[in-house]
Nucleic acid binder design. Sequence first.
DNA 1: TGGTTTAGCCC
DNA 2: GTACGGGCTAAACCAT
Length: 742
Amino acid sequence: MGARGETQAPIVFVGESPGLQEIKLRKPFMGQSGKVLNSVLPNDIPYYITNAVQCFPKAKDPAKMAKAAKCCNSRLEHELRNLETKPKIIVAMGNPAMWSLTGNYALKITQERGKLFPSDLSEHGIIPVLHPAALLRGMGSYRKFVKDIEYANDLARGESPRIPPKYTYEVPETLSDVNAAIHKIKDLPLLIGDIETGGLNNRTDPLLCLGVTWKPKHVIIFSEEFIQDLKPLFQGSAKWVWHNGKFDIAFLRREGLNAKVDEDTMLLSYCLDENPGLHDLEQVSSDLLGAPDYKYMVKPYLPKKTTSYTNIPKDVLHDYAHLDCGNTEGIFQIMRNQVKRDPSLELLYTKTLIPASELLYHVEHNGFLVDQEQLKKNDIRLEKQIEEEASKLNEIAGYSINANSPIQMSKLLYDDLGLKGRGRSTNKKSLEKLPQNHPAIIALKAFRKVAKARSTYVTGLAKRLFDDGRVHPTFLLHGTKTGRLACRGPNLQNIPRDAELRNQFIAPKGYILIEVDLNQAELRCLAALSGDEAMCEIYNSDGMSLHDEVATALFGPNWDSEQKMRAKAVNFGIVYGREAYSLAEEFNTSTSEGQRMINSWFARFPKAHQFIQICRQAPMKNQTLVTLFGRKKRFGLVTKHNLKDLQNEAANFPHQSIASDITLHAAIRVRPKLTKMDTRIVNLVHDSIVMEVPNNPETINNVKHLVIKTMRQVPIDWGITRVPFIADAKEGTRWGSLKKVA
DNA sequence: TGGTTTAGCCC
DNA sequence: GTACGGGCTAAACCAT
């Protein structure tokens, strides 16, 4: 019972366990998941569908599902062996099916999906894929799911499995062999490189080897002891290909090698799919080449995730490195052509992403100087405040309580103190619903503020400091779905707007900080993109201000400061797709008043409204949004469950993306000129550029002039002409105390 | 030890 | 029942 399809089918789909629909109808995949599966089932060949588990476990936690899968294992095997014909391929959907069919209960579906596992239950074996229900919950990539199933369908139709690529490699062992190898390849048109390192940190961790290839299927590995002899290799005319080249060139440049990023397979992968988390080399190689898992080679030497690659024996490391390098060559050939065939992606890749690699190498390398005195002062001050607030909460509770624990605080507020709110959450919004003058609420809010400030922005920052007194973050070009940069280790894009905390970031002696930021960049983009006459008029006039105009539109000409605040919030809320309820919450007013504000805004700016509406239709119409910088937003699986979220993403995508690219391009353009003025970019925050500038009036003036002018010019050069872009400069010695100077 | 949940900071 | 787009980090908690 519980199966459907043809018993002589060449392809078998194995799901997890029946849901209510399936129990009722005695057939698998009849509900929402069934719809997803139906969209990818082959329509030219028969198929058979069953489940790994036939019972209906009450709780679907992994341990119980594993147990159930083990129980049902022999039943499933019996079912599959008794099909009329042996299938060519079996698709395992979700962890339990994969566990049961492979017998390996340690596997994880997100890591194994799309790979071919041998099995005598079918001719070619098992292909694990994500379960459709996981896709419906917004996990994983629908595009990958479709590709995985397509591969399985092709095998069922009689095509051959992909053959995992194999490469030969050599490791020159004498200096003369190294020199001969360099001489042979340094002026070839294209070299593909990949390094292995003793850690992720280019300031402290060793460079262990460099793999280079120039033609399919053969790699040269230059080992550690010859790194210093590789200078001529990087002085030839070859163009260099890397996977996340910004990482590699930072290590190589440290060693005095003139490495550069001409091509980058990670960025190609990001061009082809903007969703994060899909672009690491192993993953791309597996998807495009059918490359098998080769991490197993080095795993025995890496007991912990953090163990350094220095613990791997040299011969094993070189063996591993040659696969990385060879695979990079393989995926480059495929993806470079795919990008070339799409003019917008080609534009994005060549004009934005590759130049941005070089920019960000420098920003990361420069780092941001931290004042350790100020760090210490904040540490002491916040520690004291944390203790004070914590002891207040202890006293209120009457026992020792951890204010950092949401569970304990929830118990305190809703059980011990009997406060009545909405649900049992203790987050900021929920606390707003509780009596604001209650000492527990006051203390908890204060505690949260200072605890966050200290743990993340003081002690957390201190852990990231290097010998040079600076933090050196990593900026990710592939970290967002919109094209904004992401930043980590530490994240310098979310430092609190609190003078004491921002003052931890300073200019070195003899320099000052200048921050130039675009004024209302996203709203200006919305005006320019939509061509809304009223918005454009405001931004093109000298005396008008959007916030003032909207305040007048919403509340009449005699608005007060509170009403102006609301107007401002509506302006920024609109571009994020905020709704009446959420605005009403913020201002403690009725939903109908929230709705009135939104309606008035859209009435004042009808074309902006229309533009947003058109964007919102993209997910339903299965359209891809494209910006003039070539960024794309693709909508994978659209369901009634995620439609609203996707519409909000769509509505927000164009102006967020373009505003960010204007800043990025301005930074790319000014950086070489800044270098000549002994000026360094030390941070980028979506619509602003922070620099350290020699403290003399002439340079300061030149830098401000250059950056402001460039931020104004970039949109014009990219065809955004309906609205001017205005940038403001602030300066000072500490980031928290910058002052606007005429 | 590692993954998930909750919370809070930025544009 | 939900309600705002895009991110990162820390601490607690829980399973292994």
